[in-house]
Computed example of a mutant assay.
Amino acid sequence: MTKYTKEIKLAIYHEWIDDDRRGAYLSRKYGMRPGEIAYMVALLQRHGEGILDRPQQKYTCDFKLAAIDRVLLGGEALRQVSLDLGLTNHGILANWLRSFK
Rank of each mutant, 00 (worst) to 15 (best):
W96C: 04
P34T: 11
V81C: 08
F63K: 05
G31A: 07
H47F: 02
Y59V: 07
G91Y: 13
R79K: 13
G86C: 07
S27L: 08
M40A: 03
L26A: 06
R98K: 13
I92M: 13
L83H: 01
K29S: 08
L87Q: 05
L43I: 04
P34M: 05
Q57D: 13
R98Q: 11
A67D: 06
D84P: 11
Y39N: 05
Y59N: 04
D84M: 12
K29E: 14
K29D: 11
E76I: 04
M32D: 07
L43V: 03
G35T: 05
Y25C: 11
G35H: 04
D69G: 09
L72M: 12
A94W: 12
S82T: 05
H90N: 15
D84W: 07
G86Y: 02
A38R: 12
A38L: 10
Y25V: 14
G86L: 02
T60H: 03
M40F: 00
H90K: 13
T88R: 13
K29T: 15
A42M: 08
T88W: 11
G75C: 03
R28P: 05
E36G: 15
S99Y: 11
D84T: 13
V71N: 02
S99G: 14
L78T: 12
L93K: 02
L87S: 06
L73H: 09
K64P: 01
L72R: 11
Y39E: 07
R22H: 13
R33T: 14
L43C: 06
Y30C: 07
Q45A: 06
Q56M: 12
L97T: 01
A24W: 08
D53Q: 08
A24L: 14
L87D: 01
L78E: 09
S82E: 00
H90M: 14
R33E: 14
T88G: 14
R98G: 03
M40T: 02
G74Y: 11
I51Q: 03
E49W: 03
Q45T: 05
L43K: 01
L87F: 12
K58Y: 10
L72A: 08
V41C: 00
L85F: 10
L78K: 12
M32Q: 09
A77S: 14
G35I: 02
L72E: 14
I68K: 03
L87Y: 04
G86E: 06
V71G: 01
G50A: 08
R33M: 11
R22E: 03
L43H: 02
K58D: 15
L65M: 15
M40P: 00
Y59H: 15
A38Y: 04
A77I: 10
M40C: 04
L65P: 08
I92Q: 07
Q57A: 14
R46M: 15
A67M: 09
Y39A: 04
L87H: 04
G48H: 00
E36M: 12
R46W: 01
I68L: 09
R79V: 14
Q80A: 11
K29Y: 06
Q80N: 13
Q45P: 04
A77M: 13
R46K: 15
K64H: 07
L52Q: 06
M32L: 09
P34D: 12
A77F: 13
T60F: 02
L93V: 06
D84G: 09
G50D: 12
F63Y: 15
G74L: 10
W96K: 04
Y30N: 10
L78P: 00
I37L: 07
L44N: 01
P34R: 12
D62C: 05
A38P: 01
G23T: 01
H90E: 15
A77N: 13
L85D: 08
G91Q: 13
D69Y: 05
T60D: 10
